[in-house]
Design a protein around this nucleic acid. Structure first.
Length: 250
DNA sequence: AAGCGTTCCAACCGCGTGAGA
DNA sequence: TTCTCACGCGGTTGGAACGCT
């Protein structure tokens, strides 16, 4: 059984928005705000649209602070840098670009920037995402893979247990400066590890590898490697001082 | 000018999350 | 504690616009 639809599809208009609909929505939101409820907004505003559709139209197109037009080189650099650090978390990336939406950034990346970078000889190595790690737990495979997992894998609750990303943000970016990077073995020896939940690290980790599809910590950490494949993109020192990181093999 | 393939982006879809009942 | 429901997100799709032959 599928998910219940958010609205009556038969009675709502779909497809491109007309200028009249744009005007109606803009006028309504400017006068009344969203009221914290997009679902009921279309009816109040007199639009035959799904609430989700209204929300998307407003956020991605009608909002007054939206920046339209081409991306600057500075924006390119920010997107590329963040993508390499955190992967396809478009809303986070967009939050670093004033006036850009996640949809904008995602489209720009998929249609232009990625090709531009590849054409320039760049490599696009992203961290092994939280979802990918968690996906391995729930969908173990014999051979490790760093390709994107199938969409919509229900792993989010597990993800939080593995990677306390929320604890780290907004100062989460890994540092890759040579002074802050080290080999995997050094990392373990020095007791910097890890992002992984304490209970799992200390009590369950060794048993996890076959199930996760990894044969070692090194393999798991491969997704966080620098381009030279020998050093880790390492979390910053602040996070360590905050006690977020604990020794695995101390 | 017509036909075809490609690119781009607005919009949709379905899921996880979190607030509140 | 459990359930419900709206929100926000990332992935995907459809079709208009564009470019090439």
């Amino acid at each position: 059984m599928g998910r219940a639809p958010c609205c009556d599809k038969a009675n709502v208009k779909r497809g491109p928005w007309s200028p009249e609909e744009d005007a109606t929505l803009r006028s309504y939101v400017e006068r009344h705000g969203t009221g914290g409820n997009w679902i009921s907004l279309p009816q109040k505003a007199g639009l035959k649209r799904c609430g989700k559709s209204c929300r998307l139209r407003w956020l991605n197109y009608l909002r007054p602070d939206i920046k339209h037009g081409g991306f600057t080189e500075e924006e390119d650099n920010i997107i590329f840098s963040l993508y390499k650090t955190i992967g396809s978390r478009w809303s986070v990336i967009a939050s670093h670009l004033h006036g850009r939406t996640d949809n904008d950034v995602k489209n720009y990346w998929n249609t232009k920037l990625m090709k531009k970078i590849m054409a320039a000889g760049g490599s696009i190595n992203t961290p092994l995402s939280n979802i990918q790690i968690a996906n391995k737990l729930h969908h173990p495979s014999p051979s490790p893979s760093v390709t994107s997992p199938p969409a919509q894998i229900p792993v989010m609750k597990t993800e939080a247990a593995f990677f306390p990303v929320a604890t780290l943000e907004p100062s989460f970016p890994y540092v890759s400066a040579s002074s802050s990077s080290m080999t995997v073995d050094e990392g373990f020896r020095n007791g910097y590890i890890n992002w992984i939940d304490e209970e799992i690290c200390f009590e369950q980790a060794p048993a996890f590898f076959p199930e996760l599809g990894f044969s070692s910590w090194t393999e798991l950490l491969g997704g966080f490697m620098n381009d030279d494949s020998r050093t880790i993109l390492w979390p910053n020192a602040d996070a360590k001082q905050q006690g977020v990181y604990q020794s695995l093999y101390s």
